[in-house]
Amino acid sequence: MIKRSVFSSRTLPYLLILPQILVTLTFFYWPALQGLMQSVMRSNPFGGRNTFIWFDNFIILFTDPLYLKSIMTTFFFSACVAAVSICLGLFIATMANRALKAKAVIRTMLIWPYAVAPAISGILWLFLLHPSYGVVSYAIKHWLGMDWNPLLRGSDALFMVVIASAWKEISYNFVFFVAGMQAIPKSLIEAAAIDGASPFRRFWTITLPLLSPTLFFVTVMNIIYSFFDTFGVIHTMTQGGPGGATNILVYKVYQDGFIGLNLGASSSQSVVLMTLIIVITVLQFKYVEKKVQYTG
């Protein structure tokens, strides 16, 4: 945790940490405290005193069918995003790991979507999946013969935001999977090959199990991404519509707080989100600790 040999100074360490503490207090702890307080208060729309109402905001929240629907949408949405981007990322990484030539070019060609903003990914895919101008929607309608209108039908809209969000995340997963695969000892795979295990068998029995820590980490990161960073995708593509079909939790906080101006509801939603992410983080750290014990 600390070096054996340290510098001694009375004021310097405090001065060095001061900016970090100041920024954290002002923009993290104070707002978080405010949020907690507002979540147990009813704000007076005409100014004046707020009333303390215990957990009424939370009770209202969890009995609100719209909020429950938003929870379900969020979980479904992030499961789909994680599944699609992990499967494709893993598949492409496996292929790239097998390739012997042009490795650098391949990596370059696959890495750049990481830098594309979620909102821009939304614009690109909105054009491709637009019911009247999109080429992919044309293919869906004419080749698959399916009706397609993400601007009117909820399930289509959800599918659309999943695609736009997962596309960007493929390259993130790709980078981690390639790094994870390179860390697997070559001798292990060669030994299995000598024993006559086919490439597919080697993938399922060696690569995948040894990749499981990376897989776990990537899953957590994808879930966090799809919970919070996909705001831009939703905002450019559907604005939570049609009929709330793509209204994920983080978008609902924004809508209730900044468009509906319902401070209590928005704050209690923020508290729910904070709790959720703290749970995810604790789980992840627990797992990482275990991994450290296992290897070291």
Binding site: A32, G35, I224, D229, V250, V253, S266, I277
Partner: peptide
């Protein structure tokens, strides 16, 4: 503060 993104505390921030 490690994992808490600005998105979860937008209103108070």
């Amino acid at each position: 503060t490690l994992m808490l993104p600005v998105e979860v505390r937008i209103l108070p921030t």
